[in-house]
Simulated scan of single mutants.
Amino acid sequence: MRVVEVTTYGGPEVLDMVRRPEPVAGERPGRVRVRLHAAGVTITDLRIRAGLYADELSPLKPPFVLGADFAGVLMDPTAGPEGTLPAGARVAGFVPWYTERSGEGTYAEVVQVEPGWFAPIPADIGFTQAASVPLASVTAHQGLERLGLPAGKTLLVTGASGVVGRFAVQFAAAAGLEVTAVAYEGDESELKVLGAKHCVRRGEVADVLAALREIAPDGFDGCFDGALVGEAILPAVTNAGVFVSLADDRTPVPVRDIRVETVLGKPDARLLATILKKVEDRELITRVADVMPLEEVSEAHRRAEEGHRPGRIILMI
């Protein structure tokens, strides 16, 4: 089967397509095979490829296969969130790559995954759309849970134009929070439809902080840092507020009694099944930036790093 390996740490050019033996049924006890149709490119993929987590991942070293999000067809029957899933069922989910640290990701034609990592894809969702949902939506939902803010409180969401941030805005608004979104110019109207009360244009941190003070002079009750701004955006949080980061190396040191949390999305098949149903019913909206063949994975990484268009870049397999 075809896989894309990180041959050494570096830029997009270190990604190389090679062939590996296709896994057979029962090769890894407790896991089932999925033949992939689509995989997502995440910011974590970019950071791992660049070597930003090399020390944390040790002794795992290149060559390894990146990729968390996936959508495809189940090759082996297994238990699902709501009963048995037969071979041939369409499923979507994500590999907890950073915590699993096996180097076996979804830039591949076939993956071996645990049943708790995926959920069935509803009939009206295609593979491309489904592959943009799992990691982003589950991370956003779990991040909002970790914030623990009751209805009526104020929440700042950075990176609101991105897939994770968009889900965070929608979940927060549904929970009754007053959301302020930091986003790319041109996304303001859409984000307000999704539930943001205020929008601030992404830019230099000093300019963003000045605009945020106009909205919340005393600071926001919480911040969901989807853009990985880190310590620089902490002044926007009120004393004794709460701050959620999505990366260990971008988690600030607590000050002013602010509670600081790091959230790495953990697979939850039942939660994902509920979210996918809401996407099908258009109660939740996801965003796909580009769809590219697996052979163009290096270009996909370049586009993701340059921020051509916010949203998930999907690799078709």
Rank of each mutant, 00 (worst) to 15 (best):
A269Q: 14
P235G: 00
V237E: 05
K266E: 14
G241Q: 09
K278W: 09
L271D: 08
F243L: 13
K266I: 12
V255T: 14
L228H: 09
A240Y: 03
F243Q: 12
R259L: 14
G241M: 09
G186H: 01
G219A: 10
T180M: 06
K192A: 04
V260I: 00
E190Q: 13
T251Q: 07
D257K: 09
K277E: 15
A269P: 08
N239S: 05
L234I: 11
V237H: 09
L191I: 12
R270K: 14
K278R: 15
D257S: 12
V237G: 03
P267D: 10
C199D: 01
A227H: 03
V205L: 07
E214G: 06
R201G: 07
V229E: 04
R202E: 10
D248R: 12
R202L: 12
A211C: 07
V208R: 10
F224L: 07
V255W: 03
E280I: 02
F243M: 10
V255D: 01
P267F: 11
A216C: 02
G226I: 02
V255N: 02
E261P: 02
K277G: 13
F243H: 15
R270L: 12
E261F: 06
V182Q: 08
R213K: 08
V260H: 00
A236G: 04
T238I: 00
S189C: 03
K197S: 11
V200D: 08
V193E: 13
E261I: 02
P217G: 02
K278H: 04
P235K: 06
G230L: 07
V179F: 03
R213W: 01
I233L: 00
T180C: 08
L264Q: 02
G241N: 09
A269L: 10
G226K: 08
S245R: 11
P254L: 14
D187A: 15
L191D: 10
G265W: 08
P217Q: 01
L264N: 01
A211F: 03
I258A: 09
D249A: 02
N239P: 01
P252G: 09
F220M: 04
A210S: 14
E204F: 07
V205K: 08
G230I: 06
R270W: 04
F224M: 13
R259F: 05
L212Q: 06
V237K: 03
I215V: 15
S189D: 15
V208Y: 10
R250C: 06
E261R: 06
